[in-house]
Design a protein around this nucleic acid. Structure first.
Lengths: 98, 98
DNA sequence: CAGTATCCGTATCGATACTG
DNA sequence: CAGTATCGATACGGATACTG
């Protein structure tokens, strides 16, 4: 309770948004990109972001078939903020870059 | 482990930095401002922020005596980022404003 | 490929009491 | 006023197994 910013602040979420920004759109891509995340956790994060309107999940029936996650306008705005956070991190937190 | 951005992301921390930004500098002020936080938790957050160089703690021997927390340059930079987060929140998260 | 189900361990928070 | 000490509760993440 009293979670200041809803979904933002959960572990992995910021990294996730940032990876989405970088063009990763498939479950497996994200899973690989976020080293150490487990599928159940990733699934939960994606769902939470979807529920809060940050991204859309769309199932493609193309070739190859699959699932894609794409940012909404809200997600786009968030990505900008996330960028600022990471910039701060890399500038001021020598160790905790990535 | 693998906590993306160190101290940023812990509960209360963002609100705390923002309140510091707004001029709150005393323990009791912050405790009152962050409704629902408990002194032990606040103490821990302040210590973590101090350790990571976001703020300085200085004990004043003036009249009245007391303790003050003031942001460092790093904290100043963080405050700007935090501002962006909250702006995003108020713009895109109707419910979860403050 | 893209997830869901389940269980467990612990980090973190909440709450109260107490102190220099 | 500005904290520290302590302890219990639980939410969350980690890990593994399994499925449409």
């Amino acid at each position: 309770m009293a979670r200041p910013l809803g979904v933002v602040g959960d572990r992995w979420t910021l990294l996730l948004v940032r990876d989405l920004l970088r063009g990763r759109s498939h479950f497996a891509e994200l899973e690989e990109s976020l080293e150490g995340i487990f599928p159940n956790v990733l699934s939960g994060r994606l769902k939470a972001l979807e529920d809060s309107g940050v991204l859309n999940r769309l199932v493609t029936s193309g070739r190859p078939p699959g699932t894609e996650y794409q940012r909404t306008d809200k997600g786009q705005a968030l990505a900008a903020v996330v960028g600022a956070i990471f910039d701060w991190g890399t500038e001021w937190e020598p160790k905790a870059d990535e």
